[in-house]
Design a binder for these strands. Structure first.
Lengths: 121, 121
DNA sequence: TAGATACTGAACCATATGGTTCAGTATACC
DNA sequence: GGTATACTGAACCATATGGTTCAGTATCTA
């Protein structure tokens, strides 16, 4: 993939792009869970779930701690502040852009009407 | 990858996980642009940029229209409403979860103090 | 009509993703 | 000590990602 700089920002959006991982986050929002718990809940092998948790951990969305033979997963420190901010900013940009386009359309309508009048003259 | 259901929701988070694509969205927020414009701005081959635009288009974040030999890209209809909503909901979950943990910590502190008193008795 | 411009598609490369199985290792329990 | 449980790592598979080059095709423009 030849990705040069893979920021935590990039990583968290990537982490959120999978339904299973979003589900895991929601689950951990309710209670901490072991790999076995999560694998059971999402009907997947331990190895598979371990990978998902790894992706979430890389993104800072989850932290884990192994005590005895069980690894407990809990929500990490990253609380999607920047991500929320980016999306909000984008939404404003989007609104502004479409307002602008609306104005162009209005302008065209106005001109058309004027042309119509001219033709009829 | 054996992905069964790749929703537009998944796709837009995936689309946002790349800095170049986020940049393209910001750019298109300011003005429509051709593939050549974007490729120039982000120092990339036309083919490379075409692929990024394809990903954004798949996600509904961009629409394109080819007139003559130029393909013009503009912001699509998807305005990240659901995505913003998911993140907001998560942030609330996160807050609630950490408040809960704080309470547990408080509880432990309280107990410890009580134990301390007991020992001193 | 010739040449420049704009895109497009196929092929290739390296790595990531989303899974699996299989073969461990470490810990808990009887 | 022996067995069950919980995780882990390696290897594998198919597809996606993020690029590239190269060889077109289509459209402007002089």
């Amino acid at each position: 993939m030849v990705q040069y700089t893979r920021t935590a920002f990039d990583a968290s959006f990537a982490a959120l792009s999978d339904a299973t991982r979003r589900g895991v986050l929601e689950q951990l929002g309710r209670a901490d869970a072991s790999i076995t718990d999560l694998a059971g809940k999402f009907r997947m092998t331990l190895t598979g779930m371990k990978k998902h948790v790894g992706v979430l951990e890389q993104a800072g969305l989850v932290t884990t701690e192994k005590v005895g033979r069980v690894r407990t997963c809990r929500l990490g420190l990253r609380r999607l502040e920047e991500e929320a901010a980016w999306i909000e900013r984008y939404r404003q940009l989007w609104e502004a852009r479409f307002d602008e386009l609306d104005q162009v359309v209005e302008e065209l309508k106005r001109k058309e009407k004027a042309d119509g009048r001219k033709k009829r003259e």
